[in-house]
């Protein structure tokens, strides 16, 4: 049997009559990079939100390594090892770049709550060392002490990614990591994601840019109108007439 990390079982989500998701079944295998694509309004973001506890499914359930995620608080889901990287950077604007990266490390190390007020931040050399290394690897070593509100858009995105990666997630959910990026930046991001992929991390990626999808994905799921219309390897998807009709046809690659 395959090693399934995330099992989405018959999930429906209705918003006041709108069927954002209908009968979605999806298995994410350990170690794979799974892309979820589809035209605008296909339900990709809704599906992601259901996975991280932002939305409750109207019907069906989501299992992560056998644990049901439905009804869990976002922080509980994160503590299980499911980490989401947001499309619009949701960083802590009043904190420095370094602090932004240390924050997720604290929740990873000390749990969802820790009344840890007797130790000093500058004594946490292990956290600081790893955070500095992560930021340096992502090319942000020069910005460690900068307030994040002063960062460029691209840097905010990279910071957002760093905040996800330092938690050493079991499952990383990426929401359009290259949306609005120039081609050069997109290529740099693809390279970065390829490296991350090389570490054996399980990744779910939502993406519009077919160039990104076909460079990274091991398998692809196509959503349209809240339904799964196709699933398979990139080559299978490329040749699937339903996909071409629903998606690729109207948005040339």
């Amino acid at each position: 049997m395959e090693d399934i990390v995330l099992h989405i079982d018959d999930v429906h989500k209705h918003f006041a009559g709108l069927h954002a998701l209908s009968d979605v079944n999806l298995d994410i295998r350990r170690g794979e990079t799974h892309a979820i694509i589809g035209p605008n309004g296909a339900g990709k973001s809704t599906l992601l939100n259901v996975c991280i506890g932002r939305l409750e499914p109207s019907q069906g359930k989501v299992l992560f390594e056998g644990t049901e995620l439905t009804g869990k608080q976002p922080h509980q889901i994160n503590q299980l090892g499911v980490v989401r990287v947001f499309q619009t950077p949701e960083i802590f604007e009043d904190l420095t770049v370094l602090e932004n990266v240390v924050i997720p490390m604290l929740s990873k190390r000390d749990g969802a709550f820790s009344l840890n007020f007797l130790s000093r931040l500058d004594d946490q050399a292990d956290l600081e060392g790893e955070a500095v290394k992560m930021l340096t690897d992502l090319g942000m070593g020069a910005h460690l002490q900068q307030m994040t509100s002063a960062l460029s858009r691209g840097d905010k995105r990279r910071l957002e990614l760093a905040m996800g990666l330092v938690q050493h997630p079991k499952l990383l959910l990426l929401d359009e990591p290259t949306a609005g990026m120039a081609r050069a930046d997109t290529n740099a991001t693809i390279e970065l994601l390829e490296q991350i992929k090389g570490t054996g991390l399980t990744i779910v990626i939502i993406e519009h840019d077919m160039h990104v999808v076909f460079s990274l994905a091991d398998r692809i799921t196509v959503l349209a109108g809240g339904r799964v219309i196709a699933q398979g390897t990139p080559d299978e998807i490329k040749g699937n007439p339903k996909v071409i009709e629903a998606y690729l046809g109207e948005e040339p690659v």
Partner: peptide, 14 residues
């Protein structure tokens, strides 16, 4: 104080 919402998705019970 900076972003309470995000804290939940970062694994903190605020």
């Amino acid at each position: 104080k900076s972003n309470q919402n995000r804290m939940g998705y970062t694994g903190f019970n605020t």
